[in-house]
Amino acid sequence: MKQSIFIIKENIALTHDVWKMVLEGDTSEITRPGQFVNILLDGLYLRRPISVHDAEDGVLTLIYKIVGVGTARMSEMKPGHSLDVLTGLGNGYDVTRAGARPLLIGGGVGVPPLYMLAKQLCAAGCEVTVILGFRSARDVFCKEAFEALGARVLVTTEDGTYGTRGFVTGVFDEAGDYTYTYSCGPEPMLRAVYNASGTSGEYSFEERMGCGFGACMGCSCKTLYGNKRICKDGPVLVKEEIVWEK
């Protein structure tokens, strides 16, 4: 983990409520896709955890949805503004387990962390299929970015206004054979993927956090291998250890 100051280079709307922020700073602690950063915002007590969308050579890209005061404040920030960021948080995805044809499944703001993962898997020569689930056509983002990496992209929307109508699991057949799954999204989506998938996989979870680096026990969950902290031992859990609680 490292604390450093990042400078905003770009901050633009991708949809009516999802924004992309490009920052410059020290990305050396970001070692795996699926890790997150924790951002201190003026006047707000707790840091905001946001997944790494992409990180390379001192450029960090985040994609965030405006849901409350902190993310609203982020959307108002102009290029040149600096942010205090903790980097290198969380375990991240293990790309070595992908096999030849990994299936990536993202729902809503669970989509962003899959980008850096897809980038690494495509570069490693995997045949990558990505399923992106959104509520409606106006919520769709990042489709072209995944396609540009060389991944096959299937989009579902709950209301059918874009791609296939329904949930991400509805296009599993269309996705064809896969060797492993990587997913990130709301818990009901993760659970549906867990039940629908025929292979092992990795699932990225969200929890309210006090610290984001393992000190406060604010984000604990039960697994088959004991209690884990989503922020430090996660956010990525492997299928074989997950215990569904709620």
Partner: peptide, 23 residues
């Protein structure tokens, strides 16, 4: 002790609530 169910943390003005429950 596992402690309490989550969410265990909530933000407040200039502070936070925790209900970790002695994990």
């Amino acid at each position: 002790r596992f402690g309490n169910a989550t969410p265990r943390i909530a933000e407040c003005p200039s502070g936070m609530l925790n209900a970790v429950g002695l994990q």
